[in-house]
Structures are given as structure tokens and as C-alpha cells.
Design a protein around this nucleic acid. Structure first.
Length: 804
RNA sequence: GCUGGUGUGGUGGAAUAGGCAGACACAAGGGACUUAAAAUCCCUCGGACUAAUAAUCCGUACCGGUUCAAGUCCGGUCACCAGCACCA
């Protein structure tokens, strides 16, 4: 029998869609299950074999959950705004909307050829005005709550994209997308106050089931630290405030450092004796990008400010102030107190500038030779009223003292910055705000949403850095919704992250015109039960969408504080050479070819069998055959089909064991071993020589989530049961039948294997050991020795410990 | 440097919670079928010593430890991957 996937697969895909087999039910009494994959960006290159890995994985989960009686929502859509499309449009003089339409059509066709059980009736597209209406609506709510604000600030400017980038999008001083140099530029930007949610974004990680590495990365990114602010008086009579996590070391502060951008330099310019030198240093620092500053900072540089000194509040000592670029203006207060004895960076700097190093924490080596930074074991010395305390106690005491004297306070800081939300590009959601000279920034009325992206002739970014929209005077000039006077529209658009920050909510009720989703739908479907995505999105997308969701929770729109109950991450599929697949490396594999040659089922099976789902794995064209062979053996079982409505005794254990294993492995994202178990069961069946209807039925259902087309075909051809497999239910296993009556155990003497023998599965210690001792090899090994100990692990082994 | 992770045959990878290392595949070799090839089926397949699928020894990056028993636990070292990187 020949299996023709080219004919069979499209047939079933069509039938499923016609019958709406995978459409999530509305108003269902069933228990819900919401599975979510990161919706793709429809790029011009089409799908590569990496895309289907997560889709297939959650497809397996979804299909199994449906068979188990759940009302499953497994949707897909398109995250279609974004720069590559816009750049392509510019280059080829086609409207981005056209480009998007074309790319979506291609992606859709490719994905549908894989037989993923997406609910296509809920397909969404972030560039659809009916969709971005609600993206804009959320922005307006943020604005109304004061969480969206405009700020003049130095931004990351990509010289090639001519566009502002979020800190998160700058990799080693280069644009994440195009790799061009990123420089600093001062611009007025829309910002979102994600920092207001920093604490909850950390603490609510306790509510969700994410892999530890994902949680760790999120915490790391937010970078919470607790410490204190300390006010230093200066000889100018003003105050220089620093942030420190080590206020216990205040007695060891021998100098201060401010960042080159610190405002005090302007304030003190008339008093600074060496102002030229300081200015020159500032200029040097400004020339460097952030990347260079950190990169070149192997050797510390700086300039001492002559003419102004700071006064240490704990002992009244005058200490010098330096300007150095190892202090960042954007973190803490942009100024630090330097304690060279107990901070590595301060120590390096002190050595270079020959500054005093005073030990205030005892427990390390000579602080003149190396900084002692351990907080756990140290004891305070040379520190007046905190001498003798542990570091932790000293911190507490010091904060009390500072607070009492009014020269300091406890303070928490975060590395996380507010989210730069403006983009000076065309292909994004317009920001629904107008600026009126009289009223300032005014939101447009919600009734006017969506604010549609106007058609323009040219999407080229302007050299001034304004959005292409700024050239559209008709669109820009408008009236103020507040006073009716002349006003102009915001011409910046939103970043690509906007549409993807809430898309999972829209799937719950994708065609609603009155709300982003109905209350009923939100209450029924929230939260997402299982969200799978790439590690590359753990710090950006995941954090942004959790932030938006928390905001929506606060204003009563969504019912849960966290959007995703469970998150898993898939490993990348690498090229044959073990490198990341990319066009430039020429190692990209197109799934179309695999589907054509071997069929979607084989492709799915191979992608799941390739290795641990959470780890990267190299693609091996040679290995795919094994999966195809397995499916053919399954298909050809039809020629060995016999009657029988019950699983036969000789296959009972194999079947029950496999039902258990496959079910558990799917839940634990161990698809590779689930498939291995099915292959092993196939081998058991081959040994028996034939298969009966009951057995074939169970095998088909177990295999169905992995290889849905061929199993439906066999089900139908061999008349295994009613309707389609998708109308049936997942088989049950009987725990007592998962183990054979007799099992093989190993017999060791002193931990070395001497024999293997069959014993009753339920054998007790005495029985097993006496059986073990009856073995010839074992007898030889223990003969004439004293038995010290006898160990029996049920169903596993016997170990006899002997001594001469 | 910090955080998280990984290291097992020729290859991809298995191994419950400390209990038979190498499941399941791929490749390779041998055989059957065939005029032949492909496909299919059967056998072998970590290494050493072997006539042997007898026995023995070695073997999960490296060194040491705990244990009747270690890929798994503990201490140290090395390598690689990812993220962060002067965050006071």
C-alpha cells in the first residue's frame, strides 16, 4: 500500500475547516483551554522550518485537550506593523498595506499546509483598523491615567532606520533590526510609565508558572535594588544627593563622582577653577555612544573638580568631587559616593587618582591591594556609631540615623526605564493625540477611533527625524477636541510592541465593535492557559504585555492580574551546520519542500522528534526519513488488520504504558519521548505480527495529535470508528495494567552487575533476593564471602554487598 | 565580570525522585528479496581484551568527595550557549 500525502493531507485540511472542527465554541458549558503561540510577523521571506516548531507543539496539546473534552481556543493572527515591511515598501514603491496583504496570504497558505488546528475564524491582524482601534483605545486610557507622557530626552537614534529605538532594541550600540550605528539624539518622545509597575512585575511572577530562567531574566531586567539616598552638603552650600546600596560604608567614602551630564556642573561653572578641563571631558564623553562608553571603560577616566568640595554628613570631612563617565546620569541620582575599600570600580579609580582608601568593613584581605565587597561576612570598623555591627545591621542603623538627621532616606531603584513609545515611521498605529497651543496634548474622543493611518505618497523617513506623516498637512492640521481651536495631530506612530501587547485578549472576541472583547468572553477565556514563545521575547514582549495587562486589570477591563498562567519556551531549529538559520548563512530550510516531499505529518513528527523541545537542535535532512518510515509502517498496519474489539493480552501492558507515557509527555512538553514511546509500541505490534481493530483505534488516537492527517485517513479507510478521530475521545489507561506480571531486574554484587533475571513484578524482598542468589553467576561471586548487606529496589535491582 | 543553562556513542538524543548508561531514531556494516537498483524485511553497531552475542576491565567534559549504588547529589576546574553588562 502506498500512502499518498499529496492527496490525503489537503483533503483533510479542507474537511476540518468546512466542518469547523477547531472553532472554539461560544457560550460553552465545557471547561476551557486557551493555548497561545506568539503570532508571526509576516515577513517577505515566508516561513522557515523554525516557525512550525512551537505551532506544532501547542497543536499537539490543543488536539489532545479537545479529545479530552475541553473547549479549546487555539488562535492565530498577524503582527503585521513594522519596519521590514515599510522598508520593502519604500524600496519597491508598493504601499505597506499591499505588501502586508501579500505576505499574510503566503504565510497563511504555508501554515495551513501544515494542518495546525488554528481557529481561523478568529484570525486577527494588528494593521486592521478594527483591531488597532483598540490599541489606540488602550493608549488613551494610559494617557488619561497619566501613564503616557511626553518628555524631552536623549533617545537612541538609528542612523539608518532614521528612527527612535527603545533601550531594549539597542544591542551593543547597534540597531537590533538593521545593525547600523545608534547615536544619542534629543527628541520629544511619548513615554509609558512601565516603571510604575516595576514592583508588581517582579512580585506577581509568584502567581505564574514560567520556567525559572524566564523569571530570572525578567527580574534581572527590571533590576530592583534597595538602598538609600544620602544628601551631601557642598562647600557651595547646596546639596548633592547620591544613591547607594551600601550606606553602611558611609564612613569609608573618600570622594564623590558625578556623571558628565550632571546639572551641578552648570550650577557651579563659575566656581570651578578648572572648568575648561571639565568641559573638555564632557565633550569627549558626549561624543561616545553608550556602547563605546562601556566598552572603552576598561581604564577609568575622570577629572577632579577644583573649587567645590563635598562634606560627608557622618563625620563632616571635606572630600573631593570628580566627573567620570563610569557614573551614569540615567541611574540613581547620577552621582555616587565612592568607597574604594569596598567597591571594585571605586577602588580602580582611587588607585589611578591616588585617593585614600579607608577600610570600614573588616573580614577581607588588605584593602590597599583589593576591594572587599562581601556583605555577608563583614563586620564594621572605623565607623563610629555602627562599628562592630554586621553589614546588614549597619545598613538599618545608618538609614535610621540619616532619616533622623534629615540627610538621607531609604530608597529603591530599578534598572528598568520608562518605555519610549514613539516611532517616527509610517507603518504603525497613529498615536491618537492632538496638540493644541492653548490646551496642550489632548486625546481625541474615543468615538473618533480608529484614527486611521492616512494614505501618503511617500513613506520615506524625513532627514529631520520627523515621521513621514508630518508632511501630510491635510491630516496633521485639525481642530482641538477641547476648545475647537486650531491644533495639529501627533505624527509619531506606535512601536511594533503595541499591537502585540494585548492581542491575546482580542482572540477571545475578535469581531467586537463595542469593546476590545466582551466581559463574558474575557471572564470565560482569561487567563491564557499555556503561552509558548521564544526566549528572545522574555525581556521585551513578555514584560510589555504583562504591564499593559496589569494596567487593564487596574481599570477593570480584564479579570486577572496576569495574562498568562503558564509560559514555555521552544529552542531554535538550527541549520545543518549547527548555526542559526539565516538567509546570509545560506542554511535556511523552507518547510514547503519538506511538506511536498514527505508530507506535513512527517514534518511535524520530525520537528517534535528532533530533540528536547526547549533546547536548540540542528536540522538534519537525513533523519527525516525515519519519521516518514514510521508513518508508513503505521499506515501499512491496515494489511495486518484482524478483528477484535479488545486489546489483546500480549499487547495490554505495551498499550497501557504508552497511553500513560504519551499523555504525560505531552503535558510535560516531552514530545520527543512521546514519539519514541509510540515507535516502541509499533515495534511491539510488529513483533506480534498483526493488529486488531481495538488496538489500531487506540494507536490512531494517540498518534493523531502528532500526525493528524494520516490518522484520520486510516481511521476512515479501515473503518475504525464513528465519524472522524476529532469527534472521539482520548483513551484511558489502567495503572495496574502498565506493568507486566513478570519483569527483568538486575542483580549486582558490590554494585557490579552479575546477572539479569525475571521475577514477579510484585515480588517481595525475600523472594527477590533468594531468586537472585539462585543464579549461577551470582553464586560464584558471593561464594565464600560474608554478606554485609542486601538491597532490593522493587522492580529495579538487587544488590548484594559482600566482604571476604 | 554577573545571572541562567548545557556538556552522554560516528550523529540527533533517552535515562521516574540516587537504582541495569546509550531508549527511540539517523548514519554505517552484513544478510534476504531483486536481472539490477530503489523500497522493504532480518542481524550487528561505545571502547579494550576476545573465536565468542563466555568472562573481565574501562567509559556520561576534567579532578576529588558522599553512598551498597553517581550521568544524576556535594566541592573544585575547564569548555560552550543565552541574557545582562561601570546599575553605585
Amino acid at each position: 500500500m502506498k500512502y499518498n500525502h499529496l492527496e490525503v493531507e489537503p483533503k483533510w485540511q479542507k474537511r476540518w475547516e468546512e466542518k469547523g472542527c477547531f472553532h472554539a465554541e461560544e457560550n460553552s458549558q465545557k471547561e476551557k483551554f486557551y493555548a497561545l503561540i506568539e503570532f508571526p510577523y509576516p515577513s517577505g521571506q515566508g516561513l522557515h522550518v523554525g516557525h512550525p516548531r512551537p505551532y506544532t507543539a501547542l497543536d499537539i496539546v490543543s488536539r489532545k485537550k479537545r479529545l479530552q473534552g475541553y473547549n479549546v481556543l487555539y488562535p492565530i493572527g498577524w503582527d503585521a506593523f513594522g519596519l521590514p515591511t515599510e522598508n520593502y515598501a519604500i524600496k519597491n514603491h508598493i504601499h505597506p498595506e499591499e505588501v502586508t496583504k501579500k505576505n499574510v496570504a503566503r504565510f497563511k497558505k504555508q501554515i495551513q499546509s501544515l494542518g495546525i488546528s488554528f481557529d481561523w475564524s478568529r484570525e486577527i491582524n494588528t494593521t486592521d483598523p478594527d483591531y488597532y482601534k483598540w490599541t489606540q483605545w488602550i493608549f488613551l486610557q494610559l494617557f488619561k491615567k497619566g501613564l503616557a507622557y511626553k518628555k524631552e530626552m536623549a533617545v537612541n537614534w538609528c542612523t539608518s532606520c532614521k528612527c527612535v529605538l527603545a533601550n531594549e532594541e539597542v544591542i551593543n550600540g547597534q540597531c537590533e533590526r538593521c545593525g547600523s550605528e545608534v547615536i544619542r539624539k534629543v527628541k520629544s518622545q511619548w513615554m509609558l510609565k512601565i516603571t510604575e509597575y516595576a514592583d508588581r512585575l517582579i512580585s506577581d511572577l509568584d502567581l505564574v508558572d514560567y520556567p525559572p530562567r524566564v523569571k530570572a531574566q525578567q527580574k534581572n531586567w527590571i533590576g530592583k535594588s534597595t538602598g538609600a539616598e544620602v544628601d551631601f552638603k557642598t562647600t557651595e552650600g547646596d546639596i548633592l544627593t547620591v544613591y547607594t546600596t551600601r550606606c553602611d560604608t558611609l564612613f569609608g567614602a573618600t570622594y564623590m563622582v558625578i556623571s558628565p551630564e550632571h546639572q551641578c556642573i552648570e550650577k557651579w561653572q563659575d566656581k570651578i577653577a578648572n572648568i575648561e578641563e571639565v568641559r573638555a571631558y564632557q565633550t569627549e564623553a558626549a561624543k561616545k555612544s553608550d556602547f563605546e562608553r562601556t566598552e572603552l571603560a576598561k581604564e577609568k577616566t575622570g577629572v577632579r573638580i577644583d573649587g567645590v568640595m563635598a562634606i560627608n554628613p557622618v563625620n563632616g570631612k571635606e572630600i573631593p568631587i570628580f566627573v567620570s563617565d563610569y557614573v551614569l546620569v540615567s541611574y540613581g541620582t547620577g552621582a555616587i559616593m565612592a568607597v574604594p575599600a569596598h567597591d571594585t570600580r571605586d577602588w580602580e579609580f582611587a588607585k589611578k587618582f591616588n585617593l585614600p582608601i579607608i577600610e570600614v568593613v573588616k573580614g577581607g584581605e588588605d584593602v590597599q591591594k583589593e576591594a572587599f565587597t562581601d556583605c555577608a561576612t563583614g563586620v564594621m570598623v572605623n565607623s563610629d556609631f555602627i562599628t562592630g555591627l554586621s553589614v546588614e545591621d549597619a545598613k538599618v542603623k545608618m538609614i535610621e540615623w540619616l532619616t533622623e538627621k534629615g540627610v538621607g532616606r531609604a530608597k529603591t531603584n530599578y534598572k528598568l526605564r520608562d518605555w519610549v513609545f514613539s516611532r517616527q515611521r509610517y507603518w504603525g498605529e497613529p498615536i491618537p493625540i492632538v496638540h493644541c497651543d492653548k490646551c496642550g496634548y489632548v486625546p481625541i474622543p474615543e468615538s473618533e477611533l480608529p484614527l486611521k493611518l492616512p494614505m501618503v505618497d511617500s513613506y520615506e523617513p524625513t532627514d529631520t527625524g520627523e515621521s513621514p506623516l508630518s508632511k501630510m498637512t491635510d491630516w496633521v492640521e485639525t481642530t482641538c477636541p477641547h476648545c475647537g481651536g486650531k491644533a495639529h495631530r501627533e505624527t509619531d506612530t506606535m512601536p511594533q510592541w503595541a499591537g502585540s501587547s494585548w492581542y491575546f485578549l482580542r482572540y477571545m472576541d475578535p469581531h467586537n465593535n463595542d469593546a476590545l472583547a466582551s466581559k463574558e468572553a474575557l471572564n470565560y477565556w482569561s487567563p491564557v492557559d499555556w503561552y509558548n514563545g521564544g526566549m528572545e521575547h522574555t525581556t521585551l514582549h513578555l514584560l510589555y504585555s504583562r504591564f499593559w495587562h496589569k494596567f487593564l486589570y487596574d481599570i477593570g477591563v480584564v479579570p486577572t492580574p496576569e495574562p498568562y498562567a503558564k509560559r514555555t519556551s521552544h529552542g531554535m531549529i538550527l541549520g545543518e551546520n549547527g548555526e542559526k538559520m539565516s538567509k546570509s548563512r545560506g542554511n535556511v530550510v523552507n518547510p514547503d519542500e519538506i511538506v511536498e516531499q514527505y508530507g506535513a505529518d512527517t514534518m511535524r513528527l520530525y520537528e517534535m522528534f528532533i530533540g528536547d523541545f526547549e533546547k536548540a537542535a540542528p536540522w538534519k535532512a537525513e533523519s527525516i526519513k525515519g519519521c516518514r518510515r514510521f508513518l508508513e509502517r503505521y499506515y501499512n498496519l491496515q494489511t495486518k488488520l484482524i478483528d477484535g474489539e479488545e486489546i489483546r493480552k500480549e499487547l495490554e501492558t505495551s498499550f497501557h504504558k504508552t497511553i500513560k507515557k504519551v499523555g504525560e509527555d505531552i503535558e510535560n512538553i516531552k514530545f520527543n519521548t512521546a514519539i519514541a514511546a509510540l515507535m516502541a509500541l509499533m515495534n511491539d505490534i510488529a513483533n506480534v505480527g498483526n493488529i486488531n481493530k481495538a488496538e489500531y483505534r487506540v494507536f490512531s488516537i494517540l498518534l493523531n495529535p502528532f500526525a493528524p492527517h494520516i490518522t484520520e485517513e486510516v481511521w476512515c479507510e479501515a473503518k475504525l470508528g464513528e465519524g472522524m478521530i476529532v469527534d472521539n475521545s482520548w483513551p484511558q489507561y489502567d495503572e495496574s495494567k502498565c506493568k507486566a506480571d513478570e519483569i527483568e531486574i538486575a542483580v549486582q554484587v558490590n554494585g557490579k552487575i552479575k546477572a539479569k533475571l525475571m521475577v514477579p513484578a510484585e515480588a517481595g524482598q525475600t523472594e527477590a533476593i533468594s531468586l537472585a542468589k539462585s543464579d549461577g553467576n551470582v553464586q560464584k561471586a558471593i561464594n565464600g564471602m560474608n554478606i554485609i548487606k542486601e538491597i532490593y529496589v522493587k522492580g529495579r535491582l538487587v544488590n548484594i554487598v559482600v566482604k571476604p
